[in-house]
């Protein structure tokens, strides 16, 4: 038997994207398939930082960040010491009803965080399309030329956010609801605005372990197969998985031993829930994992190292 007959070299290549100087993507093979193509980089791991103290992060996360989460710069600096290669900065900035003042303030926080840490950043608004675009515009201007990635660009707000990114030399996070065709459609819309493949990162929506993970897994796989085996250029952009937020929302990560009897230690469950979700989606094609617990980062770093050695 000839092993080379089992290799399946790809026809396409994922765009190489620089996030504030940190390269992502660029591969000509499925996730970690170094035996049949180029895989220049391991998945990047980001830790999440918020501009306001979160109210619903469970105890295992409060134990780590509780002392610093009232100060976004201190929180971000702590994330760097905990092993983050980049940050996913979420700007609540007055939330869904924030006004111009709140928007300007929150953009100032983003600039201070990026200035203080000097590491690459994905910067997300409060999660409401109109506000995401307003916050994104302010952040794009405040961090002009830093090549940050702004989100979430969805179909309804992609023009505003895309134009801001184009104008100030930033990229966008293109978010679509767990569907291969909708993901592609948004990339097409963004490229019509003039954004290059190297200025887009896709967020095809992450489902946590036990909460729709298999949908994300299969959508990521199908996007990556279309990009590499069918050479579909509109799919050849890196993928980000927002693992931490989804994973730490689950009952299995949050419930104490009394609420979930017979399911063991909460910290073990929570860390593994996040790390298993992250590894599974990395195997499906995720290039960036946004995480919350530093122990997940360490576990995944060891796994990725083993996935790169023979």
């Amino acid at each position: 038997m000839v092993l080379s007959s089992l290799s399946e070299p790809a026809k396409g290549r994922i765009a190489r994207v620089d996030i504030g100087g940190l390269p992502v993507g660029g591969q000509t093979a499925l996730a970690f398939h170094r035996f049949e193509g180029e895989v220049p980089f391991l998945p990047r791991m980001a830790l999440e930082v918020w501009d306001t103290a979160p109210e619903d992060w469970p105890q295992p996360l409060a134990d780590i960040y509780g002392a610093v989460w009232h100060d976004p710069v201190a929180w971000a600096e702590k994330a760097v010491t905990l092993g983050a290669e980049m940050l996913v900065l979420r700007l609540m900035g007055g939330g869904a009803k924030g006004d111009a003042k709140a928007t300007a303030e929150t953009a100032g926080v983003a600039a201070a965080v990026v200035e203080a840490t000097g590491i690459p950043a994905v910067i997300l608004g409060p999660g409401e399309p109109e506000r995401d675009a307003e916050v994104g515009k302010a952040v794009a201007a405040a961090l002009s030329g830093k090549h940050c990635f702004l989100g979430m660009a969805e179909e309804v707000n992609h023009r505003a956010l895309g134009a801001a990114a184009l104008g100030y030399g930033q990229g966008v996070i293109a978010s679509s609801p767990i569907d291969v065709n909708l993901a592609k459609q948004l990339n097409v819309l963004l490229s019509r605005l003039g954004l290059e493949e190297s200025a887009i990162i896709m967020d095809p929506t992450t489902g946590a372990l036990g909460y729709g993970l298999e949908y994300s897994y299969t959508v990521f796989e199908r996007i990556r197969l279309a990009a590499l085996t069918q050479n579909d250029q509109k799919m050849q952009v890196p993928i980000i998985a927002l693992v931490g937020g989804e994973s730490w929302k689950t009952k299995e990560s949050r419930a104490g031993e009394a609420e979930l009897p017979g399911a063991g230690d909460r910290l073990t469950r929570g860390v593994l829930w996040e790390a298993v979700t992250g590894l599974t989606l990395a195997l499906a094609g995720a290039d960036i994992l946004a995480l919350r617990h530093p122990r997940s980062v360490q576990l995944l770093r060891t796994a990725f190292d083993s996935l790169s050695r023979t």
Partner: peptide, 30 residues
């Protein structure tokens, strides 16, 4: 917890029989 994380790799990537070295429910559940 590394062994458990590695076991999850094999669930996704085609193993039919996986030998685990834990009986901890917090590790088996995921």
């Amino acid at each position: 917890l590394l062994g458990t994380l590695y076991a999850s790799f094999f669930i996704a990537k085609y193993a039919a029989v996986i030998i685990l070295e834990t009986l901890d429910p917090a590790q088996l559940l995921p």
